[in-house]
Design a protein around this nucleic acid. Structure first.
Lengths: 144, 144
DNA sequence: TTGGGTGCAAATTGTTTGCAATTGT
DNA sequence: ACAATTGCAAACAATTTGCACCCAA
Protein backbone atom coordinates (compact mmCIF):
# COMPACT_ATOMS: atom_id res chain seq x y z
CA UNK A 1 0.00 0.00 0.00
CA UNK A 2 1.20 3.57 -0.64
CA UNK A 3 2.54 5.25 2.45
CA UNK A 4 -0.29 7.45 3.70
CA UNK A 5 0.94 10.88 4.68
CA UNK A 6 -1.76 11.70 7.22
CA UNK A 7 -0.22 9.44 9.80
CA UNK A 8 0.73 10.52 13.32
CA UNK A 9 4.28 9.26 12.94
CA UNK A 10 4.87 11.59 10.01
CA UNK A 11 4.11 14.50 12.27
CA UNK A 12 6.14 13.21 15.16
CA UNK A 13 9.04 12.53 12.86
CA UNK A 14 9.30 16.22 12.05
CA UNK A 15 8.81 17.25 15.67
CA UNK A 16 5.22 18.42 15.52
CA UNK A 17 2.54 17.55 18.00
CA UNK A 18 -0.19 15.37 16.59
CA UNK A 19 -3.24 17.59 16.63
CA UNK A 20 -6.62 17.14 15.02
CA UNK A 21 -6.05 20.13 12.78
CA UNK A 22 -2.71 18.95 11.46
CA UNK A 23 -4.06 15.51 10.71
CA UNK A 24 -7.08 16.98 8.96
CA UNK A 25 -4.95 19.25 6.82
CA UNK A 26 -2.67 16.41 5.80
CA UNK A 27 -5.65 14.23 4.99
CA UNK A 28 -7.16 16.93 2.86
CA UNK A 29 -3.95 17.53 0.92
CA UNK A 30 -3.61 13.82 0.40
CA UNK A 31 -7.16 13.09 -0.66
CA UNK A 32 -7.85 16.16 -2.71
CA UNK A 33 -8.40 15.70 -6.40
CA UNK A 34 -6.75 19.04 -7.09
CA UNK A 35 -3.19 18.81 -5.83
CA UNK A 36 -2.45 22.49 -5.45
CA UNK A 37 -4.49 24.25 -2.81
CA UNK A 38 -4.42 27.70 -1.29
CA UNK A 39 -4.69 28.22 2.46
CA UNK A 40 -8.18 29.51 1.82
CA UNK A 41 -9.05 26.36 -0.16
CA UNK A 42 -7.88 24.17 2.69
CA UNK A 43 -9.78 26.25 5.21
CA UNK A 44 -13.05 26.27 3.27
CA UNK A 45 -12.96 22.59 2.45
CA UNK A 46 -12.34 21.66 6.05
CA UNK A 47 -15.22 23.86 7.15
CA UNK A 48 -17.40 22.18 4.53
CA UNK A 49 -16.42 18.85 5.96
CA UNK A 50 -17.71 20.11 9.27
CA UNK A 51 -14.28 20.42 10.84
CA UNK A 52 -13.68 23.17 13.36
CA UNK A 53 -10.61 25.07 12.32
CA UNK A 54 -9.41 28.66 12.02
CA UNK A 55 -7.76 30.26 9.03
CA UNK A 56 -4.83 31.31 11.20
CA UNK A 57 -4.18 27.72 12.10
CA UNK A 58 -4.25 26.71 8.47
CA UNK A 59 -1.61 29.29 7.63
CA UNK A 60 0.52 28.39 10.63
CA UNK A 61 0.32 24.68 9.98
CA UNK A 62 1.06 25.03 6.28
CA UNK A 63 4.10 27.11 7.13
CA UNK A 64 5.28 24.50 9.61
CA UNK A 65 4.69 21.78 7.06
CA UNK A 66 6.70 23.67 4.52
CA UNK A 67 9.56 24.20 6.95
CA UNK A 68 9.41 20.49 7.77
CA UNK A 69 9.49 19.56 4.11
CA UNK A 70 6.03 17.99 4.16
CA UNK A 71 4.56 20.41 1.68
CA UNK A 72 5.83 22.71 -1.01
CA UNK A 73 4.65 26.24 -1.54
CA UNK A 74 4.18 27.69 -5.01
CA UNK A 75 3.42 31.14 -6.36
CA UNK A 76 2.09 30.46 -9.84
CA UNK A 77 -0.11 33.29 -11.04
CA UNK A 78 -2.58 35.13 -8.88
CA UNK A 79 -1.87 36.60 -5.49
CA UNK A 80 -2.13 33.59 -3.22
CA UNK A 81 0.30 30.80 -2.50
CA UNK A 82 -0.63 27.25 -3.42
CA UNK A 83 0.50 24.27 -1.40
CA UNK A 84 1.00 20.71 -2.48
CA UNK A 85 2.15 17.63 -0.65
CA UNK A 86 5.88 17.07 -1.00
CA UNK A 87 6.01 13.76 -2.76
CA UNK A 88 9.76 13.40 -2.80
CA UNK A 89 10.18 13.32 -6.55
CA UNK A 90 11.35 16.52 -8.16
CA UNK A 91 8.69 17.65 -10.54
CA UNK A 92 7.86 20.91 -12.18
CA UNK A 93 4.61 22.40 -13.39
CA UNK A 94 2.78 23.39 -16.51
CA UNK A 95 -0.16 25.72 -16.17
CA UNK A 96 -2.77 25.98 -18.90
CA UNK A 97 -3.45 29.66 -19.51
CA UNK A 98 -6.98 28.91 -20.69
CA UNK A 99 -8.23 26.49 -18.07
CA UNK A 100 -5.88 27.08 -15.16
CA UNK A 101 -5.23 23.36 -15.09
CA UNK A 102 -1.92 22.39 -13.49
CA UNK A 103 0.03 19.50 -14.98
CA UNK A 104 3.11 18.04 -13.36
CA UNK A 105 6.11 16.81 -15.29
CA UNK A 106 9.68 15.72 -14.76
CA UNK A 107 12.72 16.40 -16.84
CA UNK A 108 16.06 15.02 -15.69
CA UNK A 109 17.64 16.65 -18.75
CA UNK A 110 16.54 20.10 -17.67
CA UNK A 111 17.62 19.42 -14.11
CA UNK A 112 21.06 18.44 -15.32
CA UNK A 113 21.36 21.56 -17.44
CA UNK A 114 20.37 23.66 -14.46
CA UNK A 115 23.17 22.18 -12.39
CA UNK A 116 25.63 22.86 -15.16
CA UNK A 117 24.53 26.45 -15.54
CA UNK A 118 24.77 27.12 -11.81
CA UNK A 119 28.22 25.55 -11.80
CA UNK A 120 29.32 27.67 -14.76
CA UNK A 121 28.54 30.72 -12.66
CA UNK A 122 30.40 29.34 -9.67
CA UNK A 123 27.30 28.38 -7.73
CA UNK A 124 25.76 25.27 -6.26
CA UNK A 125 22.17 24.60 -7.24
CA UNK A 126 20.07 24.34 -4.10
CA UNK A 127 16.58 24.46 -5.54
CA UNK A 128 14.65 25.72 -8.50
CA UNK A 129 11.24 26.74 -9.76
CA UNK A 130 10.13 26.05 -13.28
CA UNK A 131 6.66 26.78 -14.55
CA UNK A 132 5.58 26.48 -18.16
CA UNK A 133 2.62 28.55 -19.25
CA UNK A 134 0.91 26.68 -22.03
CA UNK A 135 -2.18 26.64 -24.17
CA UNK A 136 -4.03 24.06 -26.26
CA UNK A 137 -3.19 24.67 -29.90
CA UNK A 138 -6.09 25.69 -32.10
CA UNK A 139 -6.97 22.49 -33.98
CA UNK A 140 -5.65 22.55 -37.54
CA UNK A 141 -8.18 23.74 -40.09
CA UNK A 142 -10.44 25.18 -37.43
CA UNK A 143 -10.76 28.93 -37.59
CA UNK A 144 -12.86 31.43 -35.71
CA UNK B 1 23.78 53.89 -29.84
CA UNK B 2 21.54 51.42 -28.04
CA UNK B 3 17.86 52.21 -28.41
CA UNK B 4 16.91 54.11 -25.26
CA UNK B 5 13.68 52.87 -23.77
CA UNK B 6 12.59 56.06 -22.07
CA UNK B 7 11.55 57.63 -25.33
CA UNK B 8 8.11 59.12 -26.03
CA UNK B 9 7.61 56.98 -29.12
CA UNK B 10 7.94 53.81 -27.09
CA UNK B 11 4.99 54.89 -25.01
CA UNK B 12 2.95 56.06 -27.97
CA UNK B 13 3.67 52.82 -29.78
CA UNK B 14 1.87 50.88 -27.04
CA UNK B 15 -0.99 53.35 -26.86
CA UNK B 16 -0.05 55.18 -23.68
CA UNK B 17 -0.06 58.92 -23.21
CA UNK B 18 3.38 60.38 -22.72
CA UNK B 19 3.35 61.64 -19.16
CA UNK B 20 6.15 62.81 -16.92
CA UNK B 21 5.60 59.91 -14.58
CA UNK B 22 5.78 57.24 -17.24
CA UNK B 23 8.94 58.72 -18.70
CA UNK B 24 10.53 58.95 -15.25
CA UNK B 25 9.72 55.35 -14.44
CA UNK B 26 11.13 54.10 -17.72
CA UNK B 27 14.27 56.17 -17.20
CA UNK B 28 14.73 54.77 -13.75
CA UNK B 29 14.32 51.18 -14.89
CA UNK B 30 16.75 51.82 -17.70
CA UNK B 31 19.42 53.58 -15.69
CA UNK B 32 19.26 51.58 -12.52
CA UNK B 33 22.27 49.52 -11.58
CA UNK B 34 20.03 46.88 -10.05
CA UNK B 35 17.80 45.54 -12.78
CA UNK B 36 14.99 44.14 -10.66
CA UNK B 37 13.02 46.71 -8.72
CA UNK B 38 9.87 46.59 -6.64
CA UNK B 39 7.14 49.19 -7.01
CA UNK B 40 8.28 50.57 -3.68
CA UNK B 41 11.87 50.78 -4.93
CA UNK B 42 10.77 52.74 -7.97
CA UNK B 43 8.63 55.02 -5.86
CA UNK B 44 11.32 55.77 -3.28
CA UNK B 45 14.05 56.33 -5.81
CA UNK B 46 11.91 58.76 -7.78
CA UNK B 47 11.08 60.64 -4.60
CA UNK B 48 14.78 60.77 -3.80
CA UNK B 49 15.41 62.24 -7.21
CA UNK B 50 12.96 64.95 -6.27
CA UNK B 51 10.24 63.72 -8.61
CA UNK B 52 6.65 64.21 -7.62
CA UNK B 53 4.88 60.89 -7.94
CA UNK B 54 2.43 58.73 -6.01
CA UNK B 55 2.80 55.07 -5.17
CA UNK B 56 -0.57 54.32 -6.79
CA UNK B 57 0.69 55.74 -10.06
CA UNK B 58 3.79 53.60 -9.86
CA UNK B 59 1.68 50.47 -9.47
CA UNK B 60 -0.71 51.50 -12.21
CA UNK B 61 2.02 52.39 -14.63
CA UNK B 62 4.02 49.24 -13.95
CA UNK B 63 0.89 47.18 -14.59
CA UNK B 64 0.29 49.01 -17.84
CA UNK B 65 3.91 48.52 -18.82
CA UNK B 66 3.64 44.84 -18.11
CA UNK B 67 0.46 44.53 -20.15
CA UNK B 68 2.19 46.41 -22.94
CA UNK B 69 5.21 44.14 -22.80
CA UNK B 70 7.59 46.90 -21.75
CA UNK B 71 8.44 45.32 -18.41
CA UNK B 72 8.34 41.88 -16.93
CA UNK B 73 7.07 41.08 -13.45
CA UNK B 74 8.73 38.49 -11.26
CA UNK B 75 7.85 36.91 -7.94
CA UNK B 76 11.16 35.55 -6.71
CA UNK B 77 11.16 35.21 -2.93
CA UNK B 78 9.66 37.70 -0.55
CA UNK B 79 6.23 39.20 -0.74
CA UNK B 80 6.63 41.88 -3.36
CA UNK B 81 6.82 41.71 -7.11
CA UNK B 82 9.97 42.82 -8.86
CA UNK B 83 9.93 44.49 -12.26
CA UNK B 84 12.59 44.59 -14.91
CA UNK B 85 12.74 46.16 -18.32
CA UNK B 86 11.73 43.71 -21.04
CA UNK B 87 14.89 43.50 -23.09
CA UNK B 88 13.56 41.21 -25.76
CA UNK B 89 15.99 38.38 -25.16
CA UNK B 90 14.64 35.43 -23.24
CA UNK B 91 16.63 35.09 -20.09
CA UNK B 92 16.04 33.36 -16.81
CA UNK B 93 17.28 34.07 -13.31
CA UNK B 94 19.49 32.68 -10.65
CA UNK B 95 19.04 33.99 -7.12
CA UNK B 96 21.79 33.59 -4.52
CA UNK B 97 20.20 32.38 -1.32
CA UNK B 98 22.93 34.00 0.76
CA UNK B 99 23.22 37.41 -0.80
CA UNK B 100 19.93 37.84 -2.65
CA UNK B 101 21.94 38.70 -5.75
CA UNK B 102 20.08 38.09 -9.01
CA UNK B 103 22.04 36.75 -11.97
CA UNK B 104 20.59 36.45 -15.44
CA UNK B 105 21.36 33.60 -17.80
CA UNK B 106 20.20 32.12 -21.06
CA UNK B 107 19.86 28.50 -22.03
CA UNK B 108 18.58 27.69 -25.49
CA UNK B 109 18.89 23.99 -24.62
CA UNK B 110 16.50 24.32 -21.71
CA UNK B 111 14.13 26.39 -23.81
CA UNK B 112 14.09 23.71 -26.45
CA UNK B 113 13.40 21.00 -23.89
CA UNK B 114 10.54 23.05 -22.51
CA UNK B 115 8.94 23.26 -25.92
CA UNK B 116 9.28 19.53 -26.36
CA UNK B 117 7.75 18.79 -22.99
CA UNK B 118 4.80 21.07 -23.61
CA UNK B 119 4.30 19.43 -26.99
CA UNK B 120 4.45 15.96 -25.46
CA UNK B 121 1.49 16.95 -23.32
CA UNK B 122 -0.39 18.36 -26.27
CA UNK B 123 0.25 21.98 -25.43
CA UNK B 124 1.87 24.98 -26.97
CA UNK B 125 4.46 26.75 -24.84
CA UNK B 126 3.45 30.39 -24.43
CA UNK B 127 5.78 31.49 -21.69
CA UNK B 128 7.76 30.17 -18.77
CA UNK B 129 9.40 31.08 -15.50
CA UNK B 130 12.62 29.48 -14.37
CA UNK B 131 14.45 30.51 -11.24
CA UNK B 132 17.48 28.74 -9.85
CA UNK B 133 18.15 29.14 -6.16
CA UNK B 134 21.87 28.85 -5.67
CA UNK B 135 24.62 29.27 -3.15
CA UNK B 136 28.38 29.79 -3.23
CA UNK B 137 30.03 26.46 -2.44
CA UNK B 138 32.09 26.40 0.73
CA UNK B 139 35.71 26.61 -0.54
CA UNK B 140 37.43 23.22 -0.50
CA UNK B 141 39.52 22.55 2.60
CA UNK B 142 37.87 25.40 4.45
CA UNK B 143 35.81 24.27 7.38
CA UNK B 144 33.91 26.11 10.07
C1' DT C 1 -11.59 70.81 -24.64
C1' DT C 2 -11.73 66.56 -22.91
C1' DG C 3 -10.76 61.96 -21.87
C1' DG C 4 -7.00 59.73 -20.03
C1' DG C 5 -3.77 60.21 -16.06
C1' DT C 6 -2.58 61.40 -11.35
C1' DG C 7 -2.43 61.74 -6.17
C1' DC C 8 -4.58 60.94 -2.09
C1' DA C 9 -6.84 58.19 1.04
C1' DA C 10 -9.69 54.44 1.74
C1' DA C 11 -10.55 49.72 0.50
C1' DT C 12 -9.01 44.91 -0.64
C1' DT C 13 -6.47 40.79 -0.49
C1' DG C 14 -3.43 37.57 1.46
C1' DT C 15 -1.01 36.50 5.47
C1' DT C 16 0.87 37.05 10.21
C1' DT C 17 0.66 37.90 15.17
C1' DG C 18 -0.81 38.73 20.31
C1' DC C 19 -3.18 36.60 23.66
C1' DA C 20 -6.27 33.90 26.46
C1' DA C 21 -8.27 29.48 26.31
C1' DT C 22 -7.47 24.58 24.99
C1' DT C 23 -5.22 20.28 24.12
C1' DG C 24 -1.63 16.67 23.40
C1' DT C 25 2.02 14.25 25.86
C1' DA D 1 0.92 19.63 34.86
C1' DC D 2 2.94 22.23 31.25
C1' DA D 3 4.36 23.59 27.02
C1' DA D 4 2.66 23.51 22.47
C1' DT D 5 -1.30 24.63 19.74
C1' DT D 6 -5.52 26.86 18.61
C1' DG D 7 -9.14 30.50 17.42
C1' DC D 8 -10.29 34.99 17.39
C1' DA D 9 -9.56 39.54 16.27
C1' DA D 10 -6.44 42.90 15.36
C1' DA D 11 -2.27 44.02 12.82
C1' DC D 12 0.37 43.92 8.58
C1' DA D 13 2.10 44.17 3.91
C1' DA D 14 1.39 44.58 -0.86
C1' DT D 15 -1.53 46.16 -4.14
C1' DT D 16 -5.87 48.14 -6.01
C1' DT D 17 -9.62 51.43 -6.41
C1' DG D 18 -12.90 55.71 -6.04
C1' DC D 19 -12.86 60.21 -6.93
C1' DA D 20 -11.83 65.10 -7.64
C1' DC D 21 -8.37 67.55 -9.89
C1' DC D 22 -4.92 67.96 -13.70
C1' DC D 23 -2.60 67.78 -18.05
C1' DA D 24 -1.24 65.87 -22.73
C1' DA D 25 -3.23 65.64 -27.28
Amino acid sequence: MPNPVAEPQNLRRVGLKVTQQRIRILELLEQSEVKHLSAEDVYRQLLDRGEDIGIATVYRVLNQFEAAGLVRRHHFEGGQALYELESGDHHDHMVCLDTGEVIEFESPEIEKLQEQIAAQHGFLLEDHRLVLFVRKPRPAGRVR
